[in-house]
Amino acid sequence: MGLLDNKTAIVTGSSRGIGAEVAKILAGEGAAVVVNYRQKAPRANKVVGEIQAAGGRAVAVGADLTTQEGVQALASAAMEEFGSLNVLVLNASGGMESGMEEDYALKLNRDAQINMLNAAVPLMPEGSRVVFVTSHQAHFVETVPTMPEYEPVARSKRAGEDALRELLPNLSDKGISLVVVSGDMIEGTVTATLLDRSNPGAIEARRAEAGKLYSVEEFAAEVAKMATADVESGHTEYVGGADYFGKSA
Protein backbone atom coordinates (compact mmCIF):
# COMPACT_ATOMS: atom_id res chain seq x y z
CA MET A 1 0.00 0.00 0.00
CA GLY A 2 1.33 3.43 -0.95
CA LEU A 3 0.65 6.63 0.94
CA LEU A 4 -1.14 8.04 -2.10
CA ASP A 5 -3.13 5.06 -3.36
CA ASN A 6 -6.32 6.19 -5.16
CA LYS A 7 -5.15 9.81 -5.08
CA THR A 8 -4.27 12.14 -7.95
CA ALA A 9 -1.43 14.67 -8.04
CA ILE A 10 -0.62 17.52 -10.41
CA VAL A 11 3.06 18.51 -10.52
CA THR A 12 3.64 21.74 -12.44
CA GLY A 13 6.82 22.02 -14.48
CA SER A 14 7.50 18.30 -14.28
CA SER A 15 9.00 17.38 -17.66
CA ARG A 16 12.51 17.55 -16.20
CA GLY A 17 14.56 18.28 -13.09
CA ILE A 18 12.99 18.45 -9.66
CA GLY A 19 9.42 18.28 -10.95
CA ALA A 20 10.06 15.10 -12.96
CA GLU A 21 11.62 13.40 -9.95
CA VAL A 22 8.76 14.48 -7.67
CA ALA A 23 6.24 13.09 -10.18
CA LYS A 24 8.03 9.73 -10.22
CA ILE A 25 8.20 9.53 -6.43
CA LEU A 26 4.51 10.38 -5.98
CA ALA A 27 3.60 7.79 -8.61
CA GLY A 28 5.67 5.27 -6.66
CA GLU A 29 3.51 6.06 -3.63
CA GLY A 30 0.41 5.12 -5.64
CA ALA A 31 -0.71 8.50 -6.98
CA ALA A 32 -1.94 8.99 -10.52
CA VAL A 33 0.16 11.92 -11.73
CA VAL A 34 -0.50 14.73 -14.20
CA VAL A 35 2.92 15.61 -15.64
CA ASN A 36 2.96 19.21 -16.87
CA TYR A 37 5.19 20.74 -19.54
CA ARG A 38 5.19 24.06 -21.38
CA GLN A 39 6.98 23.14 -24.63
CA LYS A 40 9.00 19.96 -24.23
CA ALA A 41 6.44 17.22 -24.96
CA PRO A 42 9.06 14.48 -25.61
CA ARG A 43 10.60 15.05 -22.17
CA ALA A 44 7.21 14.90 -20.46
CA ASN A 45 6.26 11.76 -22.39
CA LYS A 46 9.52 10.16 -21.27
CA VAL A 47 8.66 10.85 -17.61
CA VAL A 48 5.19 9.38 -18.14
CA GLY A 49 6.73 6.35 -19.85
CA GLU A 50 9.06 5.74 -16.90
CA ILE A 51 6.17 5.97 -14.44
CA GLN A 52 4.05 3.57 -16.50
CA ALA A 53 6.96 1.16 -16.92
CA ALA A 54 7.22 1.02 -13.13
CA GLY A 55 3.52 0.15 -12.87
CA GLY A 56 2.25 3.66 -12.15
CA ARG A 57 -0.34 5.89 -13.78
CA ALA A 58 0.45 9.22 -15.41
CA VAL A 59 -0.49 11.52 -18.26
CA ALA A 60 1.44 14.39 -19.88
CA VAL A 61 -0.40 17.69 -20.30
CA GLY A 62 1.01 20.66 -22.19
CA ALA A 63 -0.02 23.90 -20.51
CA ASP A 64 1.46 27.38 -20.27
CA LEU A 65 0.60 28.38 -16.71
CA THR A 66 0.87 32.10 -17.49
CA THR A 67 -2.37 31.73 -19.47
CA GLN A 68 -5.82 31.06 -18.01
CA GLU A 69 -6.40 28.41 -20.69
CA GLY A 70 -3.27 26.55 -19.59
CA VAL A 71 -4.23 26.63 -15.94
CA GLN A 72 -7.75 25.37 -16.64
CA ALA A 73 -6.47 22.64 -18.97
CA LEU A 74 -4.15 21.31 -16.30
CA ALA A 75 -6.78 21.31 -13.55
CA SER A 76 -9.36 19.70 -15.85
CA ALA A 77 -6.95 16.97 -16.95
CA ALA A 78 -6.75 15.54 -13.43
CA MET A 79 -10.52 15.10 -13.26
CA GLU A 80 -10.93 13.91 -16.85
CA GLU A 81 -8.10 11.38 -16.72
CA PHE A 82 -8.23 10.18 -13.12
CA GLY A 83 -11.44 11.49 -11.54
CA SER A 84 -9.92 13.32 -8.59
CA LEU A 85 -7.34 15.87 -7.44
CA ASN A 86 -5.75 15.56 -4.01
CA VAL A 87 -2.22 16.93 -4.29
CA LEU A 88 -1.01 20.03 -6.14
CA VAL A 89 2.76 20.56 -6.28
CA LEU A 90 3.53 24.11 -7.44
CA ASN A 91 7.01 23.47 -8.76
CA ALA A 92 7.10 25.43 -12.04
CA SER A 93 9.17 28.61 -11.85
CA GLY A 94 11.50 30.64 -14.01
CA GLY A 95 12.48 34.12 -15.04
CA MET A 96 16.15 33.77 -15.93
CA GLU A 97 15.42 32.58 -19.47
CA SER A 98 16.47 34.97 -22.20
CA GLY A 99 13.99 36.54 -24.60
CA MET A 100 10.98 36.64 -22.23
CA GLU A 101 8.89 39.77 -21.62
CA GLU A 102 10.00 42.03 -18.80
CA ASP A 103 7.41 40.96 -16.22
CA TYR A 104 7.57 37.24 -17.08
CA ALA A 105 9.10 36.26 -13.73
CA LEU A 106 6.23 37.85 -11.82
CA LYS A 107 3.65 36.40 -14.21
CA LEU A 108 4.99 32.87 -13.69
CA ASN A 109 6.24 32.92 -10.11
CA ARG A 110 3.34 34.84 -8.56
CA ASP A 111 0.30 35.19 -10.82
CA ALA A 112 0.42 31.70 -12.33
CA GLN A 113 0.79 30.09 -8.89
CA ILE A 114 -2.34 31.84 -7.59
CA ASN A 115 -4.30 31.12 -10.78
CA MET A 116 -3.31 27.45 -10.65
CA LEU A 117 -4.32 27.16 -7.01
CA ASN A 118 -7.66 28.90 -7.63
CA ALA A 119 -8.41 26.54 -10.52
CA ALA A 120 -7.50 23.46 -8.47
CA VAL A 121 -9.17 24.24 -5.13
CA PRO A 122 -12.81 23.71 -6.26
CA LEU A 123 -11.79 20.19 -7.38
CA MET A 124 -9.89 19.25 -4.21
CA PRO A 125 -11.67 17.45 -1.35
CA GLU A 126 -11.07 18.04 2.34
CA GLY A 127 -7.69 16.69 3.41
CA SER A 128 -5.95 17.71 0.17
CA ARG A 129 -2.47 19.20 0.18
CA VAL A 130 -0.78 21.99 -1.81
CA VAL A 131 3.05 22.13 -1.86
CA PHE A 132 4.84 25.28 -3.04
CA VAL A 133 8.49 24.86 -3.98
CA THR A 134 10.84 27.80 -3.46
CA SER A 135 14.48 28.59 -2.67
CA HIS A 136 16.19 30.04 0.40
CA GLN A 137 17.43 32.83 -1.87
CA ALA A 138 13.78 33.76 -2.56
CA HIS A 139 12.26 32.90 0.82
CA PHE A 140 14.77 35.09 2.70
CA VAL A 141 15.23 37.78 0.00
CA GLU A 142 13.87 40.55 2.25
CA THR A 143 16.57 39.95 4.90
CA VAL A 144 19.51 38.32 3.10
CA PRO A 145 20.84 39.80 -0.17
CA THR A 146 21.04 37.43 -3.10
CA MET A 147 23.04 37.61 -6.32
CA PRO A 148 22.00 40.57 -8.50
CA GLU A 149 21.37 38.23 -11.44
CA TYR A 150 18.86 36.25 -9.39
CA GLU A 151 17.20 39.06 -7.46
CA PRO A 152 14.23 39.72 -9.82
CA VAL A 153 13.43 35.99 -9.80
CA ALA A 154 13.90 35.73 -6.03
CA ARG A 155 11.59 38.70 -5.40
CA SER A 156 8.94 37.32 -7.76
CA LYS A 157 9.04 33.92 -6.03
CA ARG A 158 8.75 35.59 -2.61
CA ALA A 159 5.77 37.55 -3.95
CA GLY A 160 4.26 34.24 -5.04
CA GLU A 161 4.79 32.71 -1.61
CA ASP A 162 3.27 35.75 0.12
CA ALA A 163 0.24 35.69 -2.19
CA LEU A 164 -0.29 31.97 -1.52
CA ARG A 165 -0.02 32.50 2.23
CA GLU A 166 -2.73 35.15 2.03
CA LEU A 167 -5.06 32.37 0.88
CA LEU A 168 -4.39 30.18 3.95
CA PRO A 169 -7.69 31.12 5.67
CA ASN A 170 -9.70 30.28 2.52
CA LEU A 171 -7.86 26.97 2.17
CA SER A 172 -8.42 26.19 5.84
CA ASP A 173 -12.18 26.69 5.42
CA LYS A 174 -12.10 23.97 2.75
CA GLY A 175 -9.86 21.63 4.76
CA ILE A 176 -6.95 22.04 2.33
CA SER A 177 -3.42 22.55 3.69
CA LEU A 178 -0.51 24.48 2.15
CA VAL A 179 3.14 23.62 2.82
CA VAL A 180 6.14 25.57 1.55
CA VAL A 181 9.40 23.74 0.79
CA SER A 182 12.44 26.03 0.68
CA GLY A 183 15.71 24.63 -0.63
CA ASP A 184 19.24 25.86 -1.08
CA MET A 185 20.75 26.01 -4.55
CA ILE A 186 20.33 22.61 -6.14
CA GLU A 187 23.15 20.98 -8.09
CA GLY A 188 22.36 20.52 -11.77
CA THR A 189 19.18 22.59 -12.05
CA VAL A 190 18.54 25.04 -14.88
CA THR A 191 18.59 27.97 -12.44
CA ALA A 192 21.94 26.93 -10.97
CA THR A 193 23.41 26.53 -14.45
CA LEU A 194 22.16 29.95 -15.60
CA LEU A 195 23.39 31.57 -12.38
CA ASP A 196 26.81 30.04 -12.73
CA ARG A 197 26.97 31.23 -16.33
CA SER A 198 26.17 34.84 -15.40
CA ASN A 199 28.12 34.77 -12.13
CA PRO A 200 30.96 32.22 -12.53
CA GLY A 201 31.87 30.57 -9.25
CA ALA A 202 28.52 31.35 -7.59
CA ILE A 203 27.59 27.70 -7.12
CA GLU A 204 31.04 26.76 -5.85
CA ALA A 205 30.92 29.64 -3.35
CA ARG A 206 27.48 28.62 -2.07
CA ARG A 207 28.61 24.99 -1.81
CA ALA A 208 31.55 26.11 0.34
CA GLU A 209 29.26 28.16 2.60
CA ALA A 210 26.63 25.45 3.01
CA GLY A 211 29.04 22.52 3.23
CA LYS A 212 26.88 20.57 0.78
CA LEU A 213 24.28 21.28 -1.86
CA TYR A 214 21.45 18.85 -2.50
CA SER A 215 21.16 16.99 -5.79
CA VAL A 216 17.94 17.17 -7.82
CA GLU A 217 17.00 13.68 -6.63
CA GLU A 218 17.67 14.45 -2.96
CA PHE A 219 15.67 17.67 -3.00
CA ALA A 220 12.80 16.07 -4.94
CA ALA A 221 12.53 13.39 -2.24
CA GLU A 222 12.07 16.13 0.38
CA VAL A 223 9.43 17.89 -1.72
CA ALA A 224 7.53 14.64 -2.32
CA LYS A 225 7.64 13.85 1.40
CA MET A 226 5.71 17.04 2.11
CA ALA A 227 2.77 15.83 0.02
CA THR A 228 1.80 13.56 2.91
CA ALA A 229 3.79 14.88 5.90
CA ASP A 230 1.89 15.45 9.15
CA VAL A 231 2.56 19.19 9.45
CA GLU A 232 0.33 22.21 10.00
CA SER A 233 -0.92 24.29 7.10
CA GLY A 234 1.45 27.18 6.47
CA HIS A 235 4.49 25.12 7.57
CA THR A 236 7.83 25.91 5.91
CA GLU A 237 10.13 22.92 5.40
CA TYR A 238 13.76 24.03 5.12
CA VAL A 239 15.99 21.73 3.09
CA GLY A 240 19.74 22.16 3.59
CA GLY A 241 21.77 25.25 4.45
CA ALA A 242 19.00 27.44 5.91
CA ASP A 243 20.98 28.27 9.07
CA TYR A 244 23.14 30.58 6.98
CA PHE A 245 20.05 32.66 6.15
CA GLY A 246 18.59 32.76 9.67
CA LYS A 247 15.53 30.52 9.75
CA SER A 248 13.37 32.88 11.79
CA ALA A 249 12.68 35.11 8.77
Rank of each mutant, 00 (worst) to 15 (best):
A44N: 01
P125E: 13
R155Q: 09
G13P: 00
S93Y: 02
T66F: 02
L3F: 01
Q52C: 07
G2A: 04
A27Y: 00
L195K: 01
Q68I: 09
V179N: 11
A119H: 06
G94C: 04
E29G: 09
G62H: 06
S177F: 00
L90I: 06
T191V: 12
A159N: 05
M147L: 15
E222W: 05
Y104W: 14
D196F: 06
L167E: 07
A138P: 00
I25F: 03
T67I: 10
H235Y: 12
L3Q: 13
V133Y: 10
V11G: 09
L3Y: 00
N109K: 11
V11S: 12
V231Y: 09
A73G: 08
F132A: 15
V181E: 10
T66C: 13
A227T: 07
D103Q: 10
I176N: 09
L213R: 06
V223Q: 07
S215C: 03
G188D: 00
S182V: 08
H136S: 07
G240R: 15
S248G: 12
N109P: 06
G234N: 08
T228Q: 12
A221Q: 13
E126M: 05
D103P: 00
T134A: 13
D173T: 08
A163G: 08
E204Y: 00
R110F: 07
E69F: 01
V47L: 04
E166I: 11
T191C: 07
V11A: 09
I10F: 01
A73M: 06
A119E: 01
V130H: 05
G127T: 05
A202S: 14
S76Q: 11
V180N: 15
S128V: 05
G211D: 10
L4A: 11
A138K: 11
A112V: 07
D111F: 07
V153Q: 07
L117S: 03
M226L: 14
T134F: 07
A229P: 03
G30R: 04
A75Q: 02
E142P: 00
L194P: 00
E237M: 13
H136D: 10
S135W: 01
D173K: 13
V59M: 04
G55K: 11
V33D: 03
E218Y: 09
F82T: 02
I51P: 04
V47M: 12
S135F: 05
G83I: 09
A249Q: 11
K46M: 12
S84F: 00
V131M: 11
A208R: 15
E142N: 15
T191A: 15
K157A: 13
V131A: 13
L117N: 03
V61C: 04
V35E: 01
D111K: 04
I203N: 02
E151W: 03
L168D: 03
R129G: 00
V11D: 08
G95A: 10
V121S: 06
L178D: 05
V71I: 10
L74T: 02
K247Q: 14
H136I: 12
A163N: 08
V121I: 12
L167G: 02
M226V: 10
G56R: 12
A112F: 01
G28C: 14
A138R: 09
L65T: 06
V59N: 00
P122M: 08
E217G: 10
T146A: 14
S177W: 02
F245M: 14
S177E: 08
T236D: 12
T143V: 15
S198H: 07
E222G: 14
I10N: 05
E101F: 10
E69I: 06
F82V: 08
V239H: 11
